[in-house]
Amino acid sequence: EKEKAVAKKQSSKVIKASKAKLLPFEEAFPAWFSQFAEEGEPDKMGGEGIEKLFEDMELSMEGAHPFILAYRVGAAPGTFGSFSRADFKRTFEPFNIASSPALSDWLAKAHDEIMDSADEYEFRRFYAFVFPFLKNEGAKTIPGEMAVAMWGTVLAPKYPLAESFVEYATAQGEKFKAVSLDVWTQLLEFCESVQPDLTGWSEDDAWPSTIDSFVEWKKQKDGSAAA
C-alpha cells in the first residue's frame, strides 16, 4: 500500500533526478517501473509504457535506443514491444538506476559503446541479438518491412552500403518479403567486407541471392547515374 502511494505521488508530478537519487533502489525502482507497467500486469511494460518511458527520458523511439535497451537488459527472443520488470531489476540494481534521467544517461552511454565504438565485437553481438528479438516465436523469418526499418536504424548509419540496401529494399515494396536469419546475418558480413563501390563482391561468392539481386540493382543504378 505504501508503494502505491509513492507511485501515485511520483507520477502526478515531475520529479527531479536529484530527489529520486535520495531514495534507495529497493524503494525507488518499484515506484519508477510501475509508472510504465501494463495495466493489470505489473511485471510487464507494454507499448504505451515504453512510449511513456522514452518521453520521460527525452529520447526518441525512432533511433536504435529501444533496441539497445532491450539488448542490454537481455530481453528474451520474441519479446519485441515489451520489457519485463525482472530484466530491468536484474540489470539496473547494480547500477542503482531507478529513474528516467538516470536511465537516459546510461542508455546514451550504451548507445555510444555499441554504435560508435571502434570495437566491432559489441556491435556484432548487438546485431545478432536483434533478429531473434524481433522474430515471433516459431517463425523462421521477420517481416521485410520490419527488417528494413531496423537496417535503416542500425546498419545504415554505419555503412553506406546498408543505406543503399535500405533504398533497394524500399524500392522493392511488396516484393521485398520476409527476411531470413541468413540474409540478416550475411548483410552485416556483406557491409563489412564489401566496399561501397562493390569491390570485393563476386557473383561466385556465396552471398544469398537477395544480396546478389541488390548488387545487380545497384550496378544498374550506378551505371545509369554515370551515363
Binding site: 536469419l181 540474409v183 541471392s209 546478389d212
Partner: peptide, 15 residues
C-alpha cells in the same frame, strides 16, 4: 543460389 537460400532457411545446411 536461391535453392541454397531455401535449404539454409530450412536448416538442411548451415554456413
Amino acid at each position: 543460389k536461391k535453392q541454397i537460400d531455401v535449404l539454409l532457411d530450412k536448416e538442411y545446411l548451415e554456413r
